[in-house]
Amino acid sequence: MMIPVRCFTCGNVVGEHWDEFKARAREGDEDPGEVLDDLGVDRHCCRRMMVSHTDLVDVVSPYQ
């Protein structure tokens, strides 16, 4: 639905980087790995939170 606030595994706050990650790697054409390096999301547990996330608010909102 929304990006989780924290990494499930280590508890690092990943939510704060989502907007920039989305703008640069999803909507932009930068390499996701390089964007995450740049944002300081180093551990692979936190990186998968960002890489594997899908925003579903647009999908559910018609049924609310």
């Binding site: 929304m2 606030v5 706050v13 939510g15 704060e16 925003d55 608010v57």
Partner: peptide, 25 residues
């Protein structure tokens, strides 16, 4: 965003202002 939270105590405020809490239509 977490930054939209208004605190009654200036010393206690969200440490990260950029965490999306919920997208509103």
């Amino acid at each position: 965003y977490s930054g939209d939270l208004v605190s009654s105590e200036p010393l206690v405020e969200p440490a990260d202002k950029n965490v999306p809490l919920i997208e509103l239509k």
